[in-house]
Design a binder for these strands. Structure first.
Lengths: 209, 209
DNA sequence: TAGATTGTTAATCGATTAACAATC
DNA sequence: TAGATTGTTAATCGATTAACAATC
């Protein structure tokens, strides 16, 4: 317990959570670190080490109780709370993310969206109202938004991030193909499938016959 | 040069490429590793080290020629070639990705899509024809698809991945919230914004007043 | 009790950072 | 030439893996 937690260990908690849910669905009450690690094709030492950063969740000689560990990990990751989010940029990707059920399952509710397109502004889509980007600061305050999801074009992303950092937004999930650098205390995660795709093509070159 | 290249170094090449394009747009012909690294808020030693895995691209006492280095990195990442891709699952996310321009800019062309929904099958959207998932193997062979982009629901992802591994698909970009484990020689990149979102909520807990 | 499995400390491995000689 | 900057080797740092004592 305690000590600095490696960045990747936090991401791995999400994988553990998923796997545990699988086990629970199959009515398995207790799993050992070996079972869980084998299922995830990872090292069982690492699994135990990762969990040990946060507490003692297992019983020696027995294993981990599935359902209790699920709750613990949810609490660690802040998934037991509810969070309010806004999607900025209501294009194809923004719309897809607005309707993505996975976010709600994690307790993240997309309350509003923003766009520059007059045709979309002031309309409601599946219960999500689209506002003009001009009203960004006002609506974020009014709706008490904590998380911003950026899907605007590259050239607009930086300005949006700047405006957000002046609101009380605390975290940004950025889908624009630009590495927004964390200026102040605002948390940023860049989702960059362009890079991941390039990683694939890099390796594909070698495979190609 | 040579030696095993760290996983993250390959991803960083994409960032370098983007930054270099920025410099080029501003008509800057030559950049030093210091300039580029400062711009990206990273260590300049790392930048030089990463590039050195692939060759000697700079001139001592001078720096790196922007436009030549852009071409070199593109070649390294396989972005100088063209690749054929298919989107599997033509829901909101699948549709958004199908129309995403960033892929084409990287030389990855989405040729076809697959879905189970009769209403979508055999229709064409922005030049992308949607086929029944039953025809997966047939069309992939016919269209000579190399990369599959999975956006089907979680419960269907594993079966799709299995079927793909029996085709001549060499790489999968997976958006389903499940860690597809690389069975055979098929390359898999899991794009997991659920995990990245959980990483944000993990930290948000601490920030919350 | 004996067997199993956790949690933690130690060993290993790899990646990042630094230093510097080579050289434009 | 002197100054600047690369490319590489060495030092540091941190994360992963292993070993094992504690204990259910």
């Amino acid at each position: 317990m305690n000590k600095k937690v490696p960045h990747d260990a936090i991401l791995r908690l999400s994988f553990y959570l998923r796997a545990l849910k699988n086990f629970e669905e199959e009515n398995i009450k207790v799993v050992s670190s070996k079972q869980l690690a084998d299922f995830l094709k990872i090292n069982h030492h690492q699994l135990r080490k990762d969990l040990s950063y946060f507490g003692h969740f297992g019983k020696k000689g027995v294993g981990y109780p599935c359902s209790a560990l699920i709750d613990k990990i949810k609490t660690i990751l802040g998934l037991d709370k509810t969070w309010s989010a806004a999607v900025i940029g209501f294009g194809n990707l923004g719309r897809a993310l607005s309707f993505y059920k996975g976010f709600r399952e994690q307790g993240v509710y997309i309350k509003v969206a923003f766009d520059v397109d007059e045709k979309k502004i002031n309309k409601e889509y599946n219960g999500i109202k689209v506002y003009s980007i001009e009203q960004l600061e006002k609506i974020i305050k009014k709706e008490d938004i904590q998380i911003a999801i950026i899907t605007v074009p590259k050239y607009a992303a930086e300005e949006i991030a700047n405006r957000l950092s002046k609101c009380k937004i605390k975290a940004i999930l950025n889908f624009a193909p630009i590495n927004l650098v964390t200026s102040s205390q605002i948390l940023i995660q860049n989702v960059d499938f362009g890079c991941q795709l390039a990683y694939l093509t890099y390796h594909l070159k070698f495979l190609k016959p």
